[in-house]
Design a binder for these strands. Structure first.
Length: 301
DNA sequence: TTGTGTTTTACGACCTCC
DNA sequence: GGAGGTCGTAAAACACAA
């Protein structure tokens, strides 16, 4: 056996002499001599490995085998047997090879056409199989990176939605207090002193007046609210309903319990936000109203 | 120098498409 | 059925702290 001197190479190798000339083999650690460039140079380099092509040239074996990439790959097979039976020795691609592969990866939109594979392999002095494997692994890395980016994007959108939801809730609280206060002022009452059981039961006339007052407040605040929440407020619909005879008719538009899109400024739930707030202010004063049985009390929580 | 974590290369199993 | 894809993983190559 004859060992070659691999410049800038950490790849275990051995050169086998033969009557018909020398053959270079790329083997694993136990297969042959090991020359480490790092040991020679006394330091580590990035990507210290030369290609099979470079090594063959450096060894000056005098073999004109560089034109046949498949033959080059076959050398490893000769050492290890069929690729499926035993792993081939790993060989790092050079920076130049990786750069060319990256360019091709971008140009071909991550697809590798057979002709392109063959051409790349020939040009870079590696086996077509290596090009295919490199693309497979590169696609996997690209997908992993995309996954991270998608996650970051979704998280940012989620945080933004949460912030919007908090703002909506705060606005809702503020406006609810405003409606109640104004309603009570119009009724000539002072704000309740947290004794709801002892409150006097309003008459039907007062009840209707309360609702109409609430609608008025909503109309006055509509522009401000639309600006602060970014949600459409169907005040007109609600106002029309307030003119009907039956207060119960207002309940037809009562909100559904929050769905998975809670906090979302969507088309249905939050569009009912203000009318619902107004309505509830009135319903709370409705004769015989039982707050515990209120099916949409979730809205206030 | 060594231990350890990360990246890269390569493969087998399985799936899909033509 | 073959070619080429993904997925999961092994193992070599590499980086880096202690």
């Amino acid at each position: 056996m004859e060992s070659g001197r691999l410049i800038n190479s950490g790849v275990p190798f051995r050169a086998r002499g033969g009557s018909g000339g020398q053959m270079l083999l790329f083997g694993g650690g136990s297969h042959g001599g090991v020359l480490m460039a790092a040991a020679e140079n006394g330091r580590r380099n990035k990507r210290p490995f030369s290609t099979a092509q470079e090594e063959l040239h450096q060894l000056e074996l005098g073999l004109d085998m560089m034109d046949d990439v498949d033959q080059l790959c076959g050398f490893e097979y000769e050492l290890h047997g069929a690729p499926s039976s035993e792993r081939m020795t790993k060989r790092r691609l050079t920076a130049e090879q990786v750069r060319a592969l990256e360019v091709s990866f971008e140009e071909e939109k991550r697809k590798l056409e057979p002709e392109r594979k063959t051409e790349l392999a020939r040009r870079l002095g590696i086996a077509p199989r290596q090009v295919a494997v490199w693309f497979q692994n590169r696609r996997a890395r690209w997908r992993a990176k995309q996954l991270v980016q998608d996650f970051d994007r979704l998280r940012a959108a989620h945080d933004e939605l949460l912030a919007g939801r908090d703002k909506l809730l705060a606005d809702n609280d503020r406006l609810r207090s405003q409606v109640i206060t104004l309603t009570e002022k119009l009724q000539g009452k002072e704000p309740p002193v947290s004794q709801p059981e002892e409150q006097s039961v309003p008459s039907a006339a007062t009840y209707t007046t309360t609702i109409q007052t609430a609608v008025l407040v909503v109309q006055l605040d509509e522009d401000q609210l639309r600006e602060s929440t970014g949600c459409a407020v169907p005040v007109q619909e609600f106002a029309e309903g307030a003119n009907s005879d039956s207060p119960e008719s207002y309940l037809a538009g009562a909100p559904s319990p929050p769905s998975s899109s809670e906090g979302d400024c969507g088309d249905e739930g939050s569009a009912l936000l203000l009318p619902d707030a107004m309505l509830l202010a009135a319903v709370e004063q409705r004769p015989g109203h039982d707050a515990e049985e209120d099916s949409w009390k979730w809205f206030w929580n």
